[in-house]
Amino acid sequence: MAVTTDPPLAGAVDPAPTRRGLRRPRALGAWAAVAPLLVYCALFLGLPTWALLYEAVRRTDPATGVTSFTARNIAESWSGFYLTAMWGSLRLSLLTALICAVVGLMTAHTIAQSRGRMLRQAVLTASGVLANFGGIPLAFCFIAAAGTAGEATGLIRRIDPGFALDTFTGLVLVYPYFLIPLMVLTTMPALEGLRPQWREAAAGLGGSAWDYWRHVGGPILLPTLLGGFVLCFGSSFAAYATAQALAGGTVPLITLRIASVLSGNVLAGQENLGMAMSLDTIFICALMMAVYLPLRARSARWLDS
């Protein structure tokens, strides 16, 4: 770019005008840099979402062939068979997110406290990989380990004799595999951002360790924790490939239902209903993001100032 002047140097000569002069080209440059991404998003995210929305409210009468716009698809997606799937997804997501938030936080805390740089690096790298490890490969690993003939199945069945991988419980066991690393990745920066001075200041003012966590550490971490929980929830809610590979038709989940409706497995001509369910899913994920982003912004301000 032509206008990359070193800002402190330029500012030292004549701060105000230089700054104003620089800001505009720089902002333009920044926009130019993200433009390809924006175009990409518009094409491959915005357009499909719009199409989805359009299809979700459209209905063609099978008898007359007349197309009309209606909320019936969406209403139907929140009823009966489909509502059960929605409930299944919500329950599974809530439960796995809870488990993963707790276990992930404890893991991250242990690592943040430990002095071993190698351990920390190894766990972070592994988490980065595992958080993206899902779908068929993960399902295969679990089938090998805990499937009908799996090595670990016998062990688990001692605790729960009815255990099988293609059930709700099975999924609760599998999802943490990628969700705990996700939780570790989201909470680690916040845990490492807790300054030792805060703990010592609290102690110097007469506070116990409990006082510190109650009045300082806890409140500072809370946004990150909630954020991590929400992220796990969303991730679990939107997971498809892992669930499909493990529990194809046996566990009612919204993502599986969408897939079967869209592929015409159940009844032909139900694509619009599938679109409506997809819209519901997008709505729930958007809701999660709407909660997560402000929380993250808030704790980032505390931890970086």
């Binding site: 010592e200 200041a201 102690a203 110097g204 003012l205 116990s208 500072i220 505390w302 931890l303």
Partner: peptide
Amino acid sequence: SAAKRDMGMVFQSYSLFPHLTAAQNVAFG
């Protein structure tokens, strides 16, 4: 322990509790 010594400590920097206002920081003890 530090909590029982009744000493006031001022650190080099960044020791204020970031989620509390100035007044709440002062009132913490």
